[in-house]
């Protein structure tokens, strides 16, 4: 049958294009324009060329924030992905337990970022927080306001608490879509529990895992609200991630030029890493 070419359908995409133009392209263009200029307000701009990029690339503050961000994203992926798979594998597939588990898993995802930050900020406080006070009574020297490692542990545990559910729900959706025939065949072959996971469940979860890894990577790499509310980037600069540093620079110091240059470098890094993740995972999928 001959294929019908009807390019009028492109007009249906126009509203989305306009929306993306206003919400993404125009702001991005403005950031690029700001990154090569200096301003003291009042809509007056002075050409600065590549000076701000030069400053950012030679700034210890930027590289340290980037290292902290990469480490944070690595830890988050290393914890949330296996934990999410483990919980999804152990969730019930039939009965009332399914609804109960799904609701429980969805609850943390419904809480706004700043509220999660506030909950954990109070929860971890040594004087009144349930976690902080309990640890103090047990003799554990924990204080996220004073100790950088405690601050990191708090921010990581908070993120795991908030976002592992997303990985669980995605993996669970992948698991329930596997037909029973696969499990029956594995049973006839006498496959072990691990073999079922390795050769049936994991390959079938690949697509949802790709989405989970990408979403969690991008989200953790752009994290701002939760650590800002809990630690404010401290103690010192120990939990100052790129986004927190960027806001300090743009809003706190009103250095719009350097902040715009930093935004572009930040954006390029996210774009590169997301592309690498996506390409590696989809090309392996295609090979299989």
């Amino acid at each position: 049958m001959e294929k019908t070419w009807n390019n009028k359908a492109w007009f249906l995409v126009l509203p989305v294009l306009l929306l993306v133009a206003f919400s993404a392209v125009i702001p991005l263009m403005t950031v690029v324009n700001y990154s090569v200029q200096d301003t003291f307000g009042n809509n007056q701009f002075f050409w600065a060329g590549t000076d701000w990029f030069d400053d950012i690339l030679h700034s210890d503050r930027f590289w340290q924030a980037l290292q902290r961000n990469l480490l944070f994203s690595f830890i988050i992926l290393a914890l949330e992905i296996p934990l999410g798979i483990f919980i999804a594998l152990n969730m019930p597939r039939k009965g009332i337990g399914v609804s109960v588990c799904l609701v429980l898993m969805a609850l943390p995802l419904l809480i706004p970022w700043n509220v999660v930050g506030t909950i954990w900020q109070v929860f971890g406080r040594v004087d009144i927080g349930l976690l902080g006070r309990t640890l103090a009574i047990l003799g554990v020297d924990y204080n996220y306001v004073r100790d950088p490692i405690d601050a990191w542990i708090t921010v990581i545990v908070m993120d795991v608490w908030h976002w592992t559910s997303l990985v669980v729900l995605l993996c669970y959706a992948g698991l329930v879509s596997i037909p029973d025939a696969y499990y029956q065949a594995a049973k006839i072959d006498g496959a072990s529990r691990f073999s079922v996971f390795r050769y049936i469940q994991l390959p079938k979860m690949k697509r949802v895992l790709l989405i989970a890894v990408l979403l969690r990577f991008m989200d953790s790499f752009m994290i701002y609200t939760e650590p800002f509310v809990v630690t404010g980037g401290g103690p010192g600069n120990s939990t100052t991630f790129l986004s927190i540093d960027l806001v300090k620079m743009a809003v706190g110091q009103f250095d719009l030029g350097p902040a715009a240059a930093m935004s572009i470098v930040y954006f390029l890094i996210i774009l590169l890493l997301s592309w690498v993740f996506y390409t590696v995972m989809t090309s392996r999928d295609a090979e299989n």
Binding site: M29, V32, N33, Y34, N43, W47
Partner: peptide, 15 residues
């Protein structure tokens, strides 16, 4: 569009 702070080099880049 003055708030977008256009310059000739950046306009050429996007063009």
């Amino acid at each position: 569009f003055s708030w977008m702070a256009w310059t000739l080099p950046t306009a050429l880049f996007f063009l």
